[in-house]
């Protein structure tokens, strides 16, 4: 534990200060604060959250609850592009497991893993709010669906 090196850069801290001005209390801004820090630091590993907890003045366990609840946050280093595949009921019934398999065949990664070149990280999702398009997949901020396993290769090519 080193107290001297800052993992969250000054520019991010500045963004956070601006954010806090719009909220009555710092903890109310937690979701956005996490998003900002992840955007700038790639992920929310413990070194990052340690510092953010001090900035937010809030208990680490509560931050960790929130970080692990939303699959948009990651505590591990991530690739440049994030693939999310829904595994909840609608998607599951419409064979989302085959999409996972197709991604594995194409990129060689399972949920939670990152390709060696750092291009993709695959993650599971509990719901992408796209049940009508099940099975659904999301890459970064774009949603695809219904996805046919055969299309996966073509979709991935674009990134």
């Amino acid at each position: 534990m080193s107290a001297n090196v800052q993992v969250i850069p000054e520019s991010t801290r500045e963004r956070l200060r601006e954010l806090f001005e719009r909220f009555p209390r710092k903890p109310d801004a937690l979701l956005t604060a996490l998003y900002i820090v992840q955007e700038d630091c790639n992920n929310l590993a413990s070194e990052v959250l340690d510092e953010l907890a001090a900035v937010m003045e809030m208990p680490k366990s509560i931050m960790y609850e929130v970080v692990t609840f939303y699959h948009l946050y990651s505590t591990k280093p991530r690739g440049r592009n994030i693939i999310l595949i829904c595994q909840n009921l609608c998607c599951y019934l419409r064979s989302s497991d085959e999409i996972y398999q197709a991604v594995y065949e194409e990129l060689g990664i399972r949920p939670g893993e990152t390709t060696e070149d750092g291009r993709f990280t695959l993650e599971t999702a509990e719901c992408l709010a796209a049940c009508e398009r099940a099975p659904a997949m999301m890459i970064n901020e774009k949603t695809f669906g219904p996805v046919d396993p055969a299309q996966v290769k073509a979709i991935l090519k674009k990134y």
Partner: peptide
Amino acid sequence: VTVLGAMERGYHKRVGTYF
């Protein structure tokens, strides 16, 4: 004290600590 939390989500939900 707030050392315990309900971590993760859905089927993986469990009581735990920071990391």
